[in-house]
Computed example of a mutant assay.
Amino acid sequence: MLLFFALPAYSAIESDDFTDESKRLRFYQLTRELRCPKCQNQDIADSNAPIAADLRREIRRLLDEGQSNEQITAHMVSRYGEFVRYKPALNRHTWLLWFGPALLLLLGSAVLGALIIRRKPAPPQSTALSAAEQARLTALLKGTTDA
């Protein structure tokens, strides 16, 4: 149990001493918004991969140079591609990513609606027996088969 609670002490972000609190917050925000190219489903703040450490150092260097968050993100995207962003920009290459789930939901709703509309109601089934069927049933229950 103690080991479980000690895990946050081994976080991947290096303990850099920032001279400015706003830089520290920007660093934290940027490392949460960018994906590790090796881990693929982890941000670079949580990744222990060597490339994530390199990216954190690169972000720190760019922050020290005075670049804005947009410039830093653009630099990372130009170097690693749009994949490095958790929230890719809306453009002609990513429109399906943004609108694909809504399109699938609409398409599924249309197909379901069409199936419901086209479904024919089942014909009513009669539970009453004809006179001949009733006579045969009575004969079967009595044990005779002369009907």
Rank of each mutant, 00 (worst) to 15 (best):
I72F: 05
L129F: 08
Y10I: 05
R57F: 13
R57K: 13
M76R: 08
Q134D: 07
Q29H: 11
P121D: 13
E82L: 12
A139R: 07
I117W: 10
R56F: 00
P37W: 02
K142R: 15
R85L: 05
L97Q: 08
I59Q: 02
R118Q: 09
L103A: 15
R79A: 03
P88V: 06
E133Q: 14
D17L: 02
A147G: 07
L137E: 15
A102R: 15
Q71V: 01
L107R: 15
N91W: 00
A52Y: 01
S15N: 14
L141I: 09
A110Y: 11
A53V: 06
P37M: 04
I51N: 05
D46E: 13
G100M: 02
F4D: 13
E21R: 14
F4H: 15
A102M: 11
N69H: 12
K142L: 10
E33T: 14
K23L: 14
F27N: 00
I116Y: 00
T19K: 06
T145K: 10
E65F: 01
F27Q: 08
P124K: 11
Q40V: 11
H93P: 00
E14L: 12
T127A: 10
C36R: 00
E70M: 09
P124S: 12
A110D: 07
S78G: 14
L106F: 10
G143F: 06
Q42Y: 04
A122K: 15
L112V: 01
R60G: 09
A45I: 03
S126C: 15
L63P: 06
A139Y: 09
A131H: 11
E14P: 08
L140D: 14
E82P: 13
Q67W: 03
G100P: 00
T144C: 14
P37C: 06
E65Q: 02
Q29N: 14
L104Q: 05
A147M: 05
A110L: 00
E70N: 13
